[in-house]
Design a protein around this nucleic acid. Structure first.
Lengths: 110, 110
DNA sequence: GCATAAGTTCGATTGTAGTCGAACAATTGC
DNA sequence: GCAATTGTTCGACTACAATCGAACTTATGC
């Protein structure tokens, strides 16, 4: 069973987190995961090319924000909320609160 | 007296803020302004070329994070803390708390 | 008015990042 | 075992972003 590589949360630079969140699609994914819990890549792809989506999930994993686990042919993604909270207290909550405003380019159900 | 253009805080996208903060130099500037209050560009340039520094301050202004006012030949910069707090409650505090950890590339006194 | 200081703009260079199609890989169902 | 599904990787393309030197602009001191 192939496991995805996730950096230890202490190896994650704050700037890396901000870079991951600076893209509208990725910020939208974080919101969706916060709202709806664990979801597959396909559920979040919002009409984009598979390779684009794959690239974004890679960036989110590398920045320590999400955890990806395989489930059959599907990859399930969830926020590493507790770890991120421990590493940067209050940041994720503030990000999600700030992102709560309507966002034009967030992935949404179609 | 030449005034710098600052976007109305309500025109600032959250992603834009994160992009501004994703650069180590700019994140360091925000920390320094939070710690030490209003400072000139020269005080914060950290040995970089003037044009590089000017570019970064432009990005910080355009993202609504700082306010720049001229004072003689000097440009004084300060955080638009109250406005950013009103627009994204809790975000700036969480960013500064998270950034409080030692940062290798932050501008510092030499 | 000229020199100096602080900062901006321009343009070039280099590096980063987002996009996607095509090919590939792992898992599952039949 | 093959087809379908989900997702990754590769490579190409395009756009963005950070860097700096040179030239320019504004304000100030003499």
């Amino acid at each position: 069973m192939r496991q995805m590589r996730h950096p230890p949360i202490e190896d994650v630079a704050l700037e890396q987190v901000f870079h991951a969140l600076s893209d509208p699609f990725r910020l939208g994914v974080i919101r969706r995961l916060a709202d709806g819990g664990e979801q597959s890549c396909a559920a979040l792809e919002g009409g984009r090319a598979k390779s684009s989506v794959s690239h974004h999930f890679r960036v989110l994993r590398d920045s320590g924000l999400i955890l990806t686990r395989p489930e059959g042919t599907t990859h399930m993604n969830s926020l590493r909320a507790a770890e991120v909270e421990a590493r940067f207290p209050g940041l994720l909550g503030a990000v999600l609160a700030a992102a709560g405003a309507p966002c034009d380019t967030a992935p949404r159900d179609e």
